[in-house]
């Protein structure tokens, strides 16, 4: 783990990690494989005291853990769920989470949860709404949130600014950190006929503390963020660009469907090594 943070909170570069999934719990605790760190889906360890928490406790003793959630619904117009945030906070304390976060999205409204990462209309009103909620959540959690750009499949006519501008302004005005998912940048740009390099040009790099890599499914007419395979070359190119702009950053591979053996994940995330130190090399 490097302490050369390069972000305004001094959060460390944890190195290369993978998403911790139930299919690999036993392999990890029986073999303690080489891996710099793990990311967990926070919701998988809340309201349970069964086997998942048992394994997580053991793994958290040996590896840094970052928490990544899917249910804070920070863009929703429903009230913030402080009971749920309390559970997130308790879990973060329990596993000594390096950081915790969620997505720039909403997941439900009017008391109904769609369990998906729904896109925001990128308007001034939405921005004000989300800034206030991110600030409130951060105050309650007593730490910065690390928010991820989601993959999106539609755009609201009401939007008055590009997604990347919305996210950059949200990060500045709510004073939160960012998780840059380069696969999501690729998927979103494919779905909205955008240039991913232009998207990256708007990123406030001093707020990026983590990068996600993942595979997706290309349907020809659109891409879906399925996390079911290897990272394709154009996404690696975006990762290389991010490393050039940001410098070494905690990097995590997500693989959530058709999950292979752990060794496959190890080999896939290790491919990121060749892009590390790119900034140093570029600066001579």
């Amino acid at each position: 783990m490097s302490s050369a943070a390069g972000n305004r909170w001094g959060l460390p570069d944890l190195g290369l990690g993978v998403g911790l999934r139930p299919a690999h719990f036993r392999h990890v605790v029986e073999n303690w494989p080489g891996m710099d760190w793990f990311e967990i889906v926070s919701e998988n360890f809340i309201d349970t005291v069964g086997p998942p928490l048992h394994y997580l406790d053991r793994i958290a003793e040996r590896y840094p853990i970052a928490m990544h959630g899917v249910s804070m619904s920070l863009g929703s117009t429903d009230p913030l769920d402080f009971e749920f945030l309390g559970k997130i906070k308790a879990l973060a304390t329990r596993v000594r989470a390096a950081w915790l976060g969620d997505h720039v999205c909403w997941t439900g409204v009017a008391g109904v949860n769609g369990h998906d990462l729904y896109p925001m209309p990128y308007t001034e009103q939405s921005l004000r709404h989300m800034v206030a909620r991110v600030r409130a959540a951060q105050d309650f959690l007593e730490r910065p949130l690390v928010l991820e750009n989601p993959s999106t499949y539609l755009r609201f006519r009401a939007s008055t600014m590009p997604e990347e501008e919305f996210i950059a302004r949200l990060a500045e005005e709510a004073d939160c950190a960012l998780l840059l998912d380069v696969n999501n940048v690729y998927v979103t740009c494919r779905n909205h006929d955008l240039d991913p390099l232009e998207w990256l040009a708007s990123v406030p790099w001093d707020r990026v503390v983590q990068i996600h890599l993942a595979g997706h499914t290309d349907h020809g007419t659109h891409c879906i963020d399925t996390h079911n395979g290897r990272v394709i070359d154009p996404v690696w190119e975006l990762y290389a660009e991010a490393q050039r702009r940001r410098g070494n950053t905690a990097t995590l591979l997500e693989w959530d469907a058709d999950i292979p053996k752990f060794q496959v994940l190890q080999r896939e995330v290790a491919r990121a090594v060749r892009f590390r130190d790119a900034r140093k090399a570029a600066n001579g």
Binding site: H115, D116, Y118, Y153, L154, R157, G220, T221
Partner: peptide, 26 residues
């Protein structure tokens, strides 16, 4: 399209259908 824009390859309703199909499948 007064609410959701189309892309170069998908209509607005097809884009909504992506979320609708995902909801039930998931």
């Amino acid at each position: 399209e007064r609410v959701v824009t189309r892309s170069s390859r998908l209509s607005a309703i097809e884009r909504l259908d992506i979320y609708a199909e995902a909801y039930w499948l998931r």
